[in-house]
Amino acid sequence: MTTHAPLAIEVTGLEKSFGDTHAVAGVDLAVPEGSIYGVLGPNGAGKTTVIRMLATLIPPDAGTARVLGHDIRTEGDAVRSLVSLTGQLASVDEELTGRENLILLGRLLGLSRSASRTRADELLEAFGISEAAARLVKHYSGGMRRRLDIAASIVVTPRLMFLDEPTTGLDPRSRGQVWEIARALQAGGTTILLCTQYLEEADQLADGIAVIDRGKVIAEGTPGQLKASVGTGGLKVRLLDPGQRGDAAGILERAVGAVVLDADPAALSVSSADASRAADGVSALARAGLGIAEFSLGQPSLDEVFLALTGHLAEERDATLEEQSS
């Protein structure tokens, strides 16, 4: 790959341990300025820990990292003045109103009293939270809170924004809105480091993706390259009768390829299937008289990406791991 854009993030051999757990075990990243870069991985893979180190919240144990040319160890202040953090837990003050949150940040970033009020109202309007401006944030819906969180991150437009799982727990509509905002930010020249556990999200937004597992980058590339390495997409079938899943697996195995049994007892999928072979598989099931509730040909899920890349399913590591870093 030849990238001529200067790098917004340059990370070599970054490591961080909490006790005996190597949360981040040697991560390298190169994120070109102006791009949206996806860091894809399951809970506990070390994504949040990487972000917390890059945002200078916690020091790394080993390795070097430069953010917009500044060393995160020695030039923390310079880094902080160029980046914004949008956390997994919405990092806004629940006990203040939406408007007060934005004014607070405006004041902390050096806007005058009147300028911070004007800016707050402008952002509330743009993000569709004007009506709830005077309400305490703890009464906000998930989508509204997430939008406020992002608005809070651009009170002064950052050169680099960390978006940590921006759509986890959101309904599809709110998710689409967050994606729109991320695109608008990129169009405005902000580089975005996006951490997500959804391949679809990384695929929608990111120019480059690093897949991270157990604190290590296990694959890197454009969304297209990554999906190509996994297969063109998966065939998912849901049967009317879960009792027939064994038979169905046998038929699909012969007609299409290796079958994965889902957690849903009536569902099974084939991780790499092009459209015509998938169609063959479905008609083979129909000829065998197996009732199909639904089928779809879609993108590989994160599970399937992991299976293809690592030979094991994406598993959540000790859930307390990410919390220990806070």
């Binding site: 743009a126 569709g128 809105q177 729109e180 608008a184 930010l185």
Partner: peptide, 12 residues
Amino acid sequence: GADTAAVRQAIA
């Protein structure tokens, strides 16, 4: 919801 054009404006 968010007004994308206004968001772009706000960023600029």
